[in-house]
Amino acid sequence: MSQTTDYRISHLDALEAESIFIFREVVAEFERPCLLFSGGKDSIVMLRLAEKAFWPARIPFPVLHVDTGHNFDEVLQFRDRRVAELGVQLLVASVQEAIDQGLVVEPPNKMRNRIQTPVLLNAVEKYRFDALFGGARRDEEKARAKERVFSFRDEFGQWDPKNQRPELWALYNARVHPGESIRVFPLSNWTELDVWHYIARENLELPSIYFAHEREVVERDGMLYAVNQYVQPRPGETPRVERVRYRTVGDATCTAAIRSDADTIEKVIAEVATTRVTERGATRGDDRVSESSMEDRKREGYF
């Protein structure tokens, strides 16, 4: 931690201190917390903060991956390596299994983002989690800009934006009845650029798809989708090889790449600092359904 004699710390240190406080608060007040891990950069930063919050003890809660079955191979390999290094327990809730068991129905467009929610809620019920850490940030989306750090969910996992608990100072209300839970967002006050600066400072390893590489893509709705086993060219679409990178990592069917030459962290930071499009706007087909699609999904129990 960088510090000077005038008792000041940098904004990254202040954000880190706040996030560590939130992690500790949850572990002190809840019975069964759990960290949602997607393999994306935000959850990688979350793991780092959790590691710091409890050092020299191990991270005292398991990691849950809601696996849509549409993953980038690089991300799964990375996930397995990282949890092994940290010695944390990995739980996987499989969307494919839920489809096979008839629990959820795959939508005709094959986007599995929306059907992740019941799979997540099932896992919460099965393991009786009362607090779930998520890597969502308030700068990502305008419904998220209104969400609390401790976000109360009823027994159906639903968010009620009009009935949120007031959150003053750093006094978080952790009380729930059995079956209810709290979603906790330690990165609430971080921006995309803060996350990248932190990744650079902490020298965190990321899945390679975050950096510029050559990939076969098709252009769809103005976005570049990778051609792979899940996304096949439709009539009229011509696959071509482009130099791209991913700004977000999610389900391979609804996460698009951007054209980019940024193949190092420094170049990515320079790119993010000058971009004029939000990361979800640039790369997430699931947010394009309507102006309220994020709010609607959150009301259903999504992160």
Partner: peptide, 10 residues
């Protein structure tokens, strides 16, 4: 806020 007592050998 929280008492850290590692359950590890080292």
């Amino acid at each position: 806020q929280y008492v850290i007592r590692p359950q590890r050998e080292d």
